[in-house]
Computed example of a mutant assay.
Amino acid sequence: MTTNEEGAAQVAIVDGMDVALPPGPVTGEAVLRAAGAEPVQAHLLVRTDGGRARVVAAGERLDLALGDVPEFRSFRSGEVRHLRVAGSVWAWGAPAILEDDIRAIAGFDDDYEVVLDGAGVRPGGLVDLTGEFPPMVGLRPCGYGTAMVPIVVNGRERAVAERELTFERLVDLAFPNLPVEASRSFTVTYRRGPADRPEGSLVADQATRLEPGIRFNVTATTKS
């Protein structure tokens, strides 16, 4: 088994199999070669540990914390496709992604179901990634009630199954077709909310409980 400069073994999981990595600093190209993904130029490497999926460039030097076993998926494709999972942007190398893969990578437990645009995805089902815009994937408790909560987002009436909404979900509801750009920021405010806080604002990773008729205002700003 190979070791790094400190003598610790370097191992990765690629496509579900243990792969011995070369000693010293490791790049995306080195992972592909170790996994037998040749020619390297024809493959896409996606790292799947850490709760999300992201592309690893061939020349990118990987941060391999001592004791951690990084996980990857390789694709014989140069095309990167995207989806949003619980507010985070993921990358994938196939035209669709399995519900099982979403659940495993995100760490969703069996008490929750994967939801696509508000509708449950059957276990083992596929989420299509070939559309013009990245699909929005979330989760909700299994057996969640069918009663819908009426809300208003940017003056438009909506009905959602959730009992609370996150900042990221509200951005998706307000701007479902807006391309992902690092230069864009969002502001979320609300009124007619729960009795303990009927008005307020949200930032990334925050959420608020819903009351029927709660009104949200979501604005997008491009950073200069």
Rank of each mutant, 00 (worst) to 15 (best):
W92R: 00
D110I: 00
S74Y: 06
E29R: 15
A159N: 10
T27S: 15
V180W: 12
A204I: 08
L64M: 14
F72Y: 13
G200L: 06
V55F: 04
R103C: 05
T3C: 03
D128L: 03
F72H: 02
E29G: 12
H43G: 08
E38K: 11
E38N: 13
V14M: 02
I97R: 00
V160Q: 13
V55K: 15
S224D: 08
P70S: 08
A119H: 05
G28N: 09
L44Q: 05
R156A: 15
R76Q: 12
P141W: 03
T2L: 10
A174I: 06
V46Y: 00
R84N: 13
H43L: 07
E181I: 00
T187R: 15
R103D: 12
R61M: 06
V14L: 08
A37L: 06
E99W: 07
L126T: 09
Y144W: 12
R122G: 04
V137P: 01
P70F: 04
I102W: 01
V137T: 09
G138N: 05
E132L: 06
M17V: 15
E181T: 08
E162R: 03
L170W: 09
A159W: 12
A106G: 04
I13V: 15
T187E: 14
A96R: 12
D68M: 08
N4M: 04
V19Q: 01
E79F: 00
R209E: 10
V56G: 05
E29W: 13
P95Q: 08
R169G: 06
D205F: 10
T166L: 03
R192C: 14
R169K: 14
L139M: 14
M148L: 15
T166W: 13
V152K: 09
E113K: 01
A147H: 09
A30E: 11
A106P: 00
A161I: 06
M17W: 03
R156G: 11
E60Y: 04
